[in-house]
Every structure is written in C-alpha cells, then in structure tokens.
Design a protein around this nucleic acid. Structure first.
Length: 135
DNA sequence: CGTCTGACTTAGT
DNA sequence: TACTAAGCCAGAC
C-alpha cells in the first residue's frame, strides 16, 4: 500500500495541529487516516480504531464513518471487521463475498466464509493520539 | 438546537 | 451458550 495513502492520510496528519483553528480534522477524517494505515494482509476492528482515536465507545461512529468513506480504492475499508472478525460491513458492499475475496487475496486467514482469524492477522494501530478526541 | 440514525460493543436474561 | 436489550459517539436533518 505505497502511494495509496492519498489525501486523507496526509491531510489528517498534517492538519492535526491541535491548536490550529483552521485545520481541525474531524473524527471521520482520523478514521480514514487510520484505516489507510492498515497494512496489507492485516485487519482491524471498529473498536480498535475508536480506541486509537481516544473514543473507546465510538465504535459505531467508526463504522458509520466508513459508510461515508470516499472510495474503496483509496480506503481499505475491507480490512475493518467487527470485534468477532465477522465481515459486518460486507453487506454494505452488496455482498460480503467481495470483501472476503479481497481479504483472502491479501493472505488473510479465514475461520469461516465470512469470518477472519483475528488472532492471526489483527492489526492494532499505535497510540499516536494520546489525547482524547476533542473538536 | 433537538432528534434520529448507524458497517458496534458490552452487559443482562 | 444463544438471544435480547441498552448504551454510546459523532454526524446528518
């Protein structure tokens, strides 16, 4: 995932001037930036993303943010599953089979047709945002 | 400004 | 162990 980082990553990263009044990345933007950092062949959960952003209880918002994701190509939202490893968001793409295919192609092990092995490929983002999310 | 929704999570029965 | 209910957060209306 070389140059796929794109605008979200850069924009969110650079605009992260906590004191800056003009550039204030929203929770969604941070979600996008984080998801774009998910390594190929790995997956993460909504709760993990939310926690990394300083909002452990905002898992729902994370999933919602992905639903408003700009583009699948720029945002590997297929690497985000629920805490059980099920492809919750697969149905949002019309059919989880698409998501499963992408993950399988990346080498992600599956426990079931629509369930990935989190124990083997779960990726946890580093706490680069110690401070809680505050607009 | 109040209300509703949602690709979740946790707790209770 | 499986199902049901409530909670929680941020954003759109």
């Amino acid at each position: 995932m070389p140059e796929t980082q794109s605008a979200f990553h850069a924009n969110a990263q650079c605009g992260e001037g906590r004191g800056s009044d003009s550039a204030r990345p929203t929770f969604f933007t941070r979600v996008f930036a984080l998801v774009s950092r998910i390594p190929r062949g790995r997956v993460t959960t909504y709760g993990a993303i939310a926690r990394a952003l300083g909002a452990p209880r905002a898992a729902r918002s994370v999933g919602w943010a992905l639903s408003l994701a700009p583009g699948e190509d720029a945002l590997p939202c297929h690497r985000v599953v629920d805490r059980n490893g099920f492809l919750s968001g697969g149905w949002h793409w019309g059919h989880p089979d698409v998501m499963a295919g992408l993950l399988s192609d990346e080498g992600v092990p599956f426990l079931d047709t629509y369930r990935v092995d989190l124990a083997a490929c779960l990726w946890l983002p580093d706490d680069e945002d110690p401070e809680p999310f505050s607009q």
